[in-house]
Nucleic acid binder design. Structure first.
Lengths: 259, 259
DNA sequence: CCTTGAATATCGGTG
DNA sequence: CACCGATGTTCAAGG
């Protein structure tokens, strides 16, 4: 069944026209409508930061949850925005159409003044679908727990998520010589801060246990040379692990069908 | 169909209509035009991850730089997207209008199939303005330099951006008892890694100077309790600072004028 | 080109 | 509500 829901459009309106158009179609139930404006505007923002954006042609999107996005013709990110829960008012000021948005906690406000408006549309969109991410990554921690030999022969894992002073150790165990082993797992690229983290854990365990020797292993899909050098400096070890992705059968079928 | 000089609009087109509309107005110079589609669609994505999004009414934005955003009626983030540099093709498949986007390195593809289209517009937008943000971290550093007493009475700043082994110290000076003081400034929320950083700097200075005592102060607008505890553990200090915005005269005027 | 760190990060899960 | 960790993070700066 094809459902065609209402969309209201106005092109090239003057300020007052735009205002009455929005008052008529948006103000009643803004929590059910999206509003899109294309036009030449300038933007002021004050809140967590403060910014000014001079005149230019942009696309403004007001969503049902109060999000307001100001998109330039390039870039993935909006150049300005207001977070969900923001309240928006519309008015004219010196014949210019103004969109003014406020948010509480954190306190933020954004003001968009339009010099020219090319298009406004207002629509009640319905979308109940949720994204299914099917490339379920096999949990590396699970993988190591179920088969510690993938890290090293004779390794026994004793605990996962072991709390120590500096934070939470991903995996804790002992090697075949009964030396304590700390394993820090990173999902993507390991960074220098991962090394610091691991180093702190090793120190914590060294202090708290009677073992003079404590090993630390950093596990990640990719470990830059810089990080490896630092690991060597601190007497730590590493293991580059592969990310395994499991697809469900029906997703396999879908993938083949669509691409 | 309503046509204006700077923006082309079509409403409620069938698949073939939509296709010829886009071929006519977009395909010539996609690097100069933005394209926006509102309609009932489903989205498949495969690349760094893999995902499926079932039918629903969404807003699709193709930007001049190849970015493609799929926006649901809620949320600040696009539910699906393709990065800048992506190439997009349009065609019909079993009478459905399809937008297919590819990106190289990393290899990613996204396919949007439309069941119903409410609106398409194509526009050549011009926006040369850049965002001016005021209230940067350097301002906080400036603030402390110009008035060290905002941190502590008797504090003297000797150097900013002092290079040590582990990195760059934001501010270095001495307190009223001539004890070296290292100040690490964070623009927003301080994290545990900030503590590690500061701790390394303190150790560096302790090693390189003859002072047995070296103080380290973490300055940030917000410091979580966890981080404070860690600071206490390591004998470090902190100061929650307020972001003061130093505005240029014209910005002052703007702020006063607009808010 | 690679790497690093910041962000008005956003967003979801957990206590 | 606060905090923490992941993100298909994105983005800009620096080597």
């Amino acid at each position: 069944m094809v459902v065609r829901r209402a969309i209201k459009i106005i092109t090239n309106p003057e300020g007052e026209e735009a205002l009455s158009f929005i008052k008529k179609h948006h103000q009643k139930k803004p929590e059910k409508t999206v509003l899109h404006i294309v036009g030449d505007c300038m933007v002021e923002y004050d809140g967590r930061a403060t910014s000014f954006l001079d005149w230019g042609q942009r696309m403004i999107l007001l969503k049902q949850d109060g999000n307001v996005l100001v998109h330039q013709p390039v870039m993935r990110e909006p150049i300005n925005w207001q977070p969900a829960g923001s309240k928006t008012k519309f008015y004219t000021e010196e014949e210019l159409f103004v969109v003014s948005t406020r948010h509480m906690n954190p306190s933020e406000k954004m003001k968009i003044r339009f010099r020219t408006i090319l298009l406004i549309y207002i629509a009640q969109l319905r979308d109940t679908s949720v994204l299914r991410i099917v490339g379920m990554e096999t949990d590396v921690v699970d993988q190591i727990v179920s088969d510690p030999s993938c890290i090293e022969e004779g390794l026994r894992i004793q605990k996962r998520e072991k709390q120590v002073k500096s934070g939470m150790i991903d995996l804790f165990g002992y090697d075949k010589k009964h030396v304590p082993v700390i394993i820090e797992v990173k999902r993507s690229v390991a960074s220098i801060s991962s090394v610091h983290q691991l180093r702190m854990y090793v120190n914590d365990i060294r202090r708290d246990s009677d073992h003079a020797e404590v090993r630390g292993i950093l596990c990640a899909p990719r470990i830059p040379d810089m990080v490896k050098h630092l690991l060597v400096d601190y007497g730590l070890e590493w293991q580059e692990i592969e990310r395994k992705i499991l697809l469900h059968d029906d997703d396999q079928r879908s993938l083949k069908e669509y691409f």
